[in-house]
Design a protein around this nucleic acid. Structure first.
Lengths: 338, 338
DNA sequence: GGAATCAACTGAACCGGTTTAGTAGTAGAC
DNA sequence: GTCTACTACTAAACCGGTTCAGTTGATTCC
């Protein structure tokens, strides 16, 4: 079978302990001996067994990510694949791996976390899609597992957060529309139970207030295409219909734009539209979508790094803030109708 | 700390071995004793340590998936999230987990597989995006790791395959266009180094031949939006320009449709377009895209099951074939121009 | 020059399971 | 009434690492 530490010890004429010390850079072996052991290990092609390491050091050498979304929304969101790719770039440097769980059923999420931790699958978890008063925070505390949250939870959380200033993005979008002469700027919100759904709405409200406009044109949705259509229909039925709609994500914006056009409205002639995420397909819409570009890959990389630092005990406990989303102006926004 | 097998043995007044036998349903304990042990274990809340199990049984209780795509394409493809969700549903039933690696750099793919296997992270892997003469087949043989492939590789592969009859989908799309009176039906192909890229092209060729048409309108692309635009431009520049284009995926179709419209062409008035995948956003395009609906979640679930059966030694060695894609007719296809 | 200190190393215990070899007790065969 | 066969169990080895408690030999100190 594979070569073990005993084989190396035997070949180098030392004890197993010495090999272990040599490999891990611990004191207890002379430089000469260390070099000799390492050379023998290399010659023999020894790969320390992660399983054995894990058993004796009680570590999994893996991080966990539980994604709780319904499968249809999952496939449309460009966030996760890029986010995960970012995580991987950080993990690759440290011989850690990512254990991914997808919880589609409602109650499955908590079970996923419990299982990952109880089974010792992971040393820490990354918490995405943080909700208001998120029940996972106390859960993770109970499970005593280190974690990182994307954005800072509203309830007290002892875990470091890696945040993006989403407000800045929405503010930029609203200011762009105001500069184009829009006065009735609506917002189709994502699920308001999510921190990011709510913060985007609040940013919309505040930036309208800053421009001296009232924020009465809000329609609640849930980040899905169908929800985006329903919310758009609601807004366009109103007497004082908006001339611009700021959507909380690209999928709703895409669906909303399509719906508005099906009513015979021109985009952006009658209605300007902005999205959020800069999904690749948005530049191929008719018209191409003005949206907010984020960097999910960076977010993934930084989150994983913060978590790894925390595991290594070298995290400073500070939150990290990533650059704000960048406004990408395309043809779905234009001057307000006269 | 956590309760171990020794605690249970002590509490039940038996040896560790007896507890192990009882738990695993092996002979060597009387029914009475077995029940007593299981009760004690339950009362104590004993969870056998996966790490210890893994060490002694040399198993990881995990499957591996290596995704090798450039990050931008990753985010746009609805396939993977749903596919992974399907894998999870199968794994959840067996206390297995999924270890996901994303290889963005070119040479990283092989390293990922080696690392997963050498480190004993996984008991088997799922091979997606199978290429012609795929170097991963010999690699996995060398690593002696069980595997499942999505679609049957062209070179001999000892691994069971889970396949979708992609030809049937393309044939349905072509027949739909022929029925609409189209005679010049082009194909924008995905990467021809992929089994599925090539088989879609061949299906296009054969179904044209079946209708007595010649298949000279082929443009190579790579499944990306940019590639789709370039290929479309190529086709539309030709003297004998097509009246319909069958794309190998939705993203290229979306980009191609947008490009054609930017030239002033009407879809479907001047040009009919079909996609492949039925990504959710395609129903919100202008016009909504006629495309082929697949079931990636089912594919994931079945692939994982086949692999798990293989690990358990209960796989029959047969390939599995899933239902063919379903043609979803929307407004991007219409009668051929006069 | 003898005690104290330290570096360098060994042997064994340990992590928490599985598995093998061995033992006691019972039942059946003849 | 012994011999065999079998059940039900235990003790210990084992998986492959880490780590603790010693041991040895050289160095330092006074």
């Amino acid at each position: 079978m594979a070569v073990t530490i005993s084989d190396v010890a035997l070949a180098a004429g030392v004890s197993k302990g010495a090999v272990s010390y040599a490999l891990n850079g611990q004191p207890g072996v002379s430089p000469d001996t260390r070099d000799r052991i390492l050379k023998v290990a290399k010659d023999l092609g020894w790969k320390p067994s992660l399983r054995a390491k894990g058993l004796s050091s009680a570590k999994a050498y893996a991080l966990g990510l539980v994604v709780a979304r319904n499968p249809s929304l999952l496939g449309t969101d460009p966030f996760f694949p890029a986010f995960i790719a970012g995580i991987e770039t950080a993990l690759a440097e440290h011989d850690y791996t990512l254990v991914l769980s997808i919880a589609t059923a409602p109650g499955a999420e908590e079970r996923c976390y419990r299982k990952l931790v109880d089974n010792g699958r992971v040393d820490g978890v990354i918490l995405t899609d943080v909700r208001r008063n998120d029940s996972r925070i106390p859960l993770l505390l109970e499970l005593k597992v280190p974690a990182v949250t994307l954005n800072r939870p509203d309830t007290g959380s002892p875990f470091p957060a890696v945040s993006v200033d989403e407000s800045a993005g929405i503010v930029a979008a609203v200011e762009h529309l105001v500069a184009l002469g829009h006065r009735r700027i609506a917002h189709v919100g994502g699920g308001q139970e999510y921190i990011h759904g709510r913060s985007r709405r609040i940013a919309w409200e505040e930036s309208l207030a800053g421009a001296g406009l009232i924020s009465d044109l809000f329609a609640a949705a849930d980040f899905t295409a169908a929800g985006g259509v329903a919310a758009t229909a609601d807004l366009l039925r109103r007497a004082d219909r908006p001339t611009a709609i700021v959507y909380a994500n690209d999928l709703m914006a895409t669906a909303g734009q399509s719906y508005a056009q099906s009513l015979g409205l021109s985009v952006p002639g009658d209605l300007s539209i902005t999205g959020y995420d800069n999904a690749e397909f948005t530049q191929y819409l008719n018209p191409p979508l003005t949206t907010l570009a984020t960097d999910p890959m960076l977010w993934g990389r930084v989150s994983a790094r913060v978590l790894l630092n925390q595991l290594a005990g070298t995290h400073d406990g500070e939150d990290t803030t990533l650059p704000a989303p960048r406004l990408v102006v395309r043809a779905s926004t234009g001057p307000a109708p006269a």
